[in-house]
Computed example of a mutant assay.
Amino acid sequence: MKALKQLGIIITILLVGQILQQHFNLPIPGTVMGMIILLVLLLLKILKLQWVEKISSILLEHLSFLFVPAGVGILTSLDKFKGKVIPLFIVVMVSTIVVMVVTGVTVQLLVKNKKGEKIW
């Protein structure tokens, strides 16, 4: 029952993000808005980590399963990618490298911060 309450909190926050995105016609997806709201609530300690920790762990354990609908959607739209394979490949490679570099730098900064070393 605890996980169900936590899922309700997460879904409510995502719903608020979706409503804000549609109401203000923002260029950011509603789900991303919901995640930003969740982050702000956690950082401001309005929402305690214990209130969403269990369901977050469960969702992270099954993250690969949650990508199946997106993969199926891409497969059903393969005809739209004809003639655009090389630009798409370049975009995927560049974005992957950028994500890897940013993630690596972030982890290094967090490790230094945890050890008490000066970051800058």
Rank of each mutant, 00 (worst) to 15 (best):
I9T: 13
I11E: 00
I11V: 09
I11G: 03
I11Y: 12
T12V: 06
T12R: 04
T12G: 13
I13A: 13
I13R: 13
L14D: 08
L15T: 06
L15H: 00
V16L: 10
V16P: 01
G17F: 11
G17I: 06
Q18N: 08
Q18F: 06
Q18H: 08
I19H: 05
I19P: 05
I19Q: 10
L20S: 09
Q21I: 00
Q22V: 07
Q22R: 14
H23A: 10
F24R: 03
F24L: 14
F24P: 01
F24H: 06
N25F: 02
N25E: 12
L26R: 02
L26I: 00
L26M: 15
I28G: 09
I28A: 06
I28N: 03
P29F: 01
G30N: 05
G30M: 04
G30S: 03
G30P: 04
V32G: 02
V32T: 04
V32N: 03
V32R: 01
M33G: 04
G34E: 01
G34C: 02
M35Q: 08
M35L: 14
M35T: 04
I36F: 10
I36E: 00
I36T: 00
I37D: 10
I37A: 10
L38H: 09
L39Q: 03
L39P: 02
V40L: 15
V40Q: 05
V40E: 07
V40R: 03
L41D: 07
L42C: 09
L42N: 07
L42T: 04
L42K: 07
L44D: 07
L44C: 10
K45R: 10
K45D: 10
K45S: 07
K45L: 02
K45F: 03
K45P: 06
I46K: 09
I46E: 03
L47C: 12
K48R: 15
K48A: 13
L49S: 13
L49V: 11
L49N: 11
Q50A: 13
Q50E: 15
Q50K: 14
W51M: 11
E53R: 12
E53D: 14
K54I: 00
K54L: 05
K54H: 04
I55V: 14
I55Y: 12
S56C: 06
S56R: 10
S57L: 13
S57D: 13
S57C: 09
S57F: 13
I58D: 11
L59T: 03
L60Y: 12
L60D: 04
E61C: 11
H62E: 03
H62Y: 15
L63V: 08
F65Q: 10
F65Y: 15
L66H: 13
L66Q: 14
L66C: 11
L66G: 13
V68A: 14
P69N: 07
A70E: 08
A70F: 15
G71E: 04
G71V: 00
G71D: 03
G71Q: 00
G71Y: 09
